[in-house]
Structure formats: structure tokens, C-alpha cells
């Protein structure tokens, strides 16, 4: 009885989301489309980082590194497939298929990078992990800057513009569904147990390192997806996009939204992107206003906007809706 219900819960957002996004896409101006795509990319980054920083209670600040891995993989694939037109397939469909393939490949390589970094470093805790992930972020960037195949510091230009509003927000749906389903699963409970008390979790038989690495790999894969989507929006893949400043921005979004809250980090990422765009008019004062906003929010709500709660926890309990018992 449970299995079909679960499958439906995972698939329904996609089935309902796609037509809605396609309908919305038609009514968006170019500018709003690109702002909303950027916002969507940031939501994917924040929600996926929340899996490590929020659910598992680890502190990773190398998200942009995994983004870069996914972005370069996807960019190389779409560049290689440029001009490739299989017979009998309409070109738009072929482009879409290549792009989907490129994004998936980007996720796989980013996940592999996550595994490679996670295996040795997730035995570390707290500050040490932060330093290792930061180091990895820089290593990735330096490797790219010194590899002729990846275009060195100039990067790869001339990418096709493939990321549309629907593509980006389908990615958002996938990320949010992943995070929510993960949180409700055995894995998710193990991650929460690690966050609450690592020693106690280990004493209860939770394979702490194993679960941490798994969370890290999943999180990296979605960072790779965000990278792939971003470079096919700006049609340029350069190491300058993936500096540790980008990683810090994502951490800020997660902390601001509330560590452990999926809707919180999504709302924070979305809100911050729009706020920064709105503040563009005020030029030099933009970053001052932005920083002040962060300081004030942290002073008034140290647990972040949502804490560990989700947006619907504030809704009145509806008779037909069973509230799942949250462990946190």
C-alpha cells in the first residue's frame, strides 16, 4: 500500500510542475527569466548544501568546487555535441536530449568528486572539514586554470544557451523532492541522529562516516546540476564563477534560511537573489545594504528564518493531512 503512494509523492511534483513551468515560461520577459533562473540555481545550491550542513550538521564550504566539476563536464559535452543532428529527430528535441545527458553527466562527475573528497575528509569534524572542503574548492579552480583542455583562465566560451526557466525550475523540483524524500527516509533519520549527537549515533550502530559520505555525494551531485544549469545560462564557463566567494554565498543562504529547513534555504536563496537584483540600482551601496540585511537577520533570528521547521509547519492542521512526526 505504501509503495505506490510514495512513488506518487515523488513523481507528482514533476508531473504537475512541468506544465505549470512551461505555461509560466511563455509569459516571462528575458530579464525576469534570467533572474528567476539564477534564483533557481541558487535554490538548488542552497537546498543541496543543506543536506550536508543542515541535515547532517557538518560544515562544508566547498560547494562551488563541485559546481565547477558539474559545469565543466556539462559544458564539454554540449560543446562536443554542437552541430550534431541525428536523423529523424527534431533538432529541439535532440538539443534537449543532449542537454539532459550533459546535466546528468555533470551530476555523476560531481558526485564522484564528492566521493573522492568525502571519503578521507568526512572522518574529520567541524572546522577541519571546513578547511578541507575550502581547500578542495581552490584545488579544483587551480587545476582548471592550468589545464589547456578546459580553456585555462579564460574558460570555455561559445556554449549554446540551453537553460530555460522550465529547465532550471525542474532542477529545483528535483532537488527539493530529493531533500524532502531523503529527510523522511531511514538515511535521513540517520543523518539527523549524526547532527544531534555523533557519539550517541555511533553507539546506536549508525555507520556515521558512511552516512556522511553518502550525504556529501548526493549534495555534490546537485551542486554539479546547478553548475551545469548556470553555465548554459551565461554561455560561458570560467573558473572565476566558482571561487570560494560563491561557496560562502551558498553557506550564507543556508544559514539564513535555517540549517535543516528545506523550505527555509529555498526561500532564503530565492529572496536573496531577488533582493540583490533589486538593489542593483543603488550601485556602491548594494553590498553594504546586503551585508546589513544579513547582520540584522542574524541578530534578530539567530536560528535563521525558519529554524529547523518547514513552511507548512505554520499552516493550520488540516483534517485530511497527517503531519509526519519529525525527529528533530
Amino acid at each position: 500500500m505504501r509503495a505506490p503512494g510514495l512513488a506518487l509523492r515523488s513523481l507528482l511534483p514533476f508531473l504537475l510542475g512541468l506544465p505549470a513551468l512551461l505555461a509560466l515560461q511563455g509569459s516571462l520577459s528575458d530579464f525576469w527569466a534570467s533572474v528567476l533562473i539564477t534564483a533557481g540555481v541558487n535554490v538548488i545550491l542552497a537546498v543541496s548544501l543543506n543536506v550536508v550542513n543542515g541535515f547532517t550538521g557538518q560544515f562544508s564550504i566547498g560547494h562551488a568546487g563541485f559546481m565547477a566539476v558539474g559545469a565543466y563536464t556539462a559544458a564539454k559535452i554540449t560543446l562536443a555535441a554542437a552541430g550534431w543532428a541525428p536523423a529523424g529527430l527534431p533538432p529541439r528535441l535532440a538539443d534537449g536530449a543532449v542537454f539532459l545527458l550533459a546535466l546528468l553527466a555533470g551530476m555523476v562527475t560531481a558526485a564522484l568528486a564528492g566521493l573522492l573528497v568525502g571519503m578521507p575528509s568526512l572522518r574529520l569534524r567541524g572546522d577541519y572539514l571546513a578547511i578541507v572542503t575550502l581547500g578542495f574548492n581552490e584545488i579544483i579552480r587551480v587545476i582548471i586554470e592550468n589545464t589547456a583542455f578546459l580553456g585555462r583562465a579564460t574558460g570555455l566560451s561559445g556554449l549554446p544557451r540551453r537553460t530555460t526557466f522550465a529547465w532550471a525550475w525542474m532542477g529545483v523540483i528535483a532537488t527539493v523532492v530529493m531533500a524532502r524524500r531523503l529527510l523522511g527516509s531511514t538515511h535521513g533519520r540517520a543523518l539527523l541522529a549524526i547532527r544531534e549527537d555523533e557519539v550517541a549515533a555511533e553507539a546506536m550502530g549508525v555507520d556515521t562516516t558512511g552516512y556522511k559520505v553518502k550525504a556529501f555525494v548526493v549534495s555534490s551531485a546537485f551542486a554539479g546540476l546547478a553548475g551545469g544549469l548556470l553555465v548554459h545560462l551565461i554561455q560561458l564557463c570560467t573558473p572565476r564563477t566558482f571561487t570560494f566567494v560563491k561557496s560562502i554565498e551558498v553557506v550564507v543562504m543556508v544559514v539564513l534560511g535555517g540549517l535543516g529547513s528545506v523550505t527555509g534555504s529555498a526561500v532564503a536563496a530565492f529572496g536573496l537573489t531577488l533582493a540583490l537584483e533589486g538593489l542593483r540600482e543603488v550601485q556602491e551601496y548594494r553590498m553594504v545594504a546586503y551585508s546589513l540585511l544579513l547582520i540584522v537577520l542574524m541578530l534578530t533570528r539567530p536560528t535563521g528564518l525558519f529554524g529547523t521547521r518547514e513552511a507548512w509547519d505554520w499552516l493550520p492542521r488540516l483534517p485530511w493531512r497527517r503531519r509526519p512526526e519529525e525527529g528533530a
Binding site: F31, S34, L233, I234, T238
Partner: peptide, 11 residues
């Protein structure tokens, strides 16, 4: 930042 330049140009 390159990605900011792209959005600013579009705007």
C-alpha cells in the same frame, strides 16, 4: 563577476 555581468546586461 561574469554571471552578474550577464544578468546586468540582460536587464
Amino acid at each position: 563577476k561574469p554571471e552578474e555581468a550577464a544578468v546586468a546586461a540582460t536587464r
